[in-house]
Design a binder for these strands. Structure first.
Lengths: 196, 196
DNA sequence: TTACAAAACTAACACTTATTAGTTTTTTAA
DNA sequence: TTAAAAAACTAATAAGTGTTAGTTTTGTAA
């Protein structure tokens, strides 16, 4: 009888979620079966249900964990009394680190949220929309305070968000560059274009 | 008896592929069933097989059509005898237009290629890798000719590719900005950061 | 009108899906 | 050592999957 071994700091449910994130990223949510997930853990599919409620619940856990992490960081950044450029730099840095530390989870939140069921789908979209709006506000305020060029705030924010999201593509090249290099280069390229 | 109405410039197969691209984008490849696709066209699932070979074949058609379009444009750009900045500007412009004209298809090629079966999966990845390498070469040559700052070529290319890919997110905001504005803003933000 | 091909239909196939019920094993605590 | 709880198992369910076979309808051209 195989067993799900709970990791040092995490329940067995956490072990299942972690492996689910890995598989959902690699094969998609609908492309991953519970039997496949179970096999990867070393257990029968039905045994999973001693620890989790449903397949859907796994996706919810992953998506909202990520959304929450980003929201918490945004809260702190907004409170900080720094100039706009530093605020943006902090956010970009956080995105980069999230992508490196929680690659599978962030990827799944970015790509598989569509498979969420209501009301989770709506909630997720609202939370994301709010995040974007608040970031746009930061840029707008930077423009008003003449800390940023007179760029289109929407375009600026989406270009930044897209670029950091693109770190997904980057995973393959990890070896050829250090994280510090990557961070510096990307922030330079993204900010020096918009900061006065 | 419902019928698949062939569009002006396209076979019935083309109609099926178009609707497939739409659904694959919205619900994912594995998340879309042939019965669902058929219903959206107004026909029984089995009727589709008078026009197509398999579900897989639909995905192949979509992915390689997109990959080909990009490769053709890259060929032309490489041949052109312009400076590096103009070359990059042309490529970015093409990406933007592809995203606007063939939104569903580009999205599917970006996100659902994982569901391709061998040998198509390998072929697709090779073609994509090649595209990236050739774009990196353009940047490298621009650095050598001192037309670009001494940035990290990989990071630069991936930041650009990610940013244009981010136009996916942008679809929702179409109304608030013209395409020309979007184009100008994005190219400015992406290039003025790296051009001397 | 008749003959032929294209393209629709119904029905079924074999297989996979998430999940549940009921049972047995393992772990925990007294 | 024993009793209770946790977590594994086997087996089965009902629903959904892509696809095929065989048949009927539709459109086209002689």
């Amino acid at each position: 009888m195989a067993k799900i071994i709970a990791s040092k700091n995490g329940t067995k449910k956490d072990v299942i979620i972690k492996k689910a994130a890995f598989l959902f990223r690699k094969k998609g949510f609908t492309g991953t079966s519970m039997r496949e997930l179970a096999e990867n853990i070393g257990v029968e599919a039905s045994s999973l249900y001693n620890h989790i409620g449903s397949k859907s619940e796994l996706l919810q856990n992953i998506c909202f964990k990520v959304a929450n992490d980003f929201t918490v960081q945004l809260n702190e950044t907004e409170k900080a009394t720094t100039d706009t450029k530093t605020k943006l730099e902090n956010l970009i840095r956080f995105h980069i680190h999230m992508m490196l530390d929680l690659y599978d989870e962030v990827f799944v939140a970015n790509h598989e949220w569509k498979q969420l069921e209501e009301p989770f789908l709506s909630n997720f979209l609202i939370q994301r929309k709010l995040y974007e709006s608040r970031m746009i506000e930061i840029v707008k305020s930077g423009i008003r305070k003449k800390e940023l060029k007179n760029i289109h705030p929407h375009v600026a924010v989406f270009t930044i968000l897209s670029a950091v999201r693109g770190l997904e593509l980057w995973q393959r090249h990890k070896k050829n560059i250090t994280i510090k290099e990557l961070e510096t280069n990307m922030i330079n390229q993204l900010l020096n274009g918009i900061s006065k």
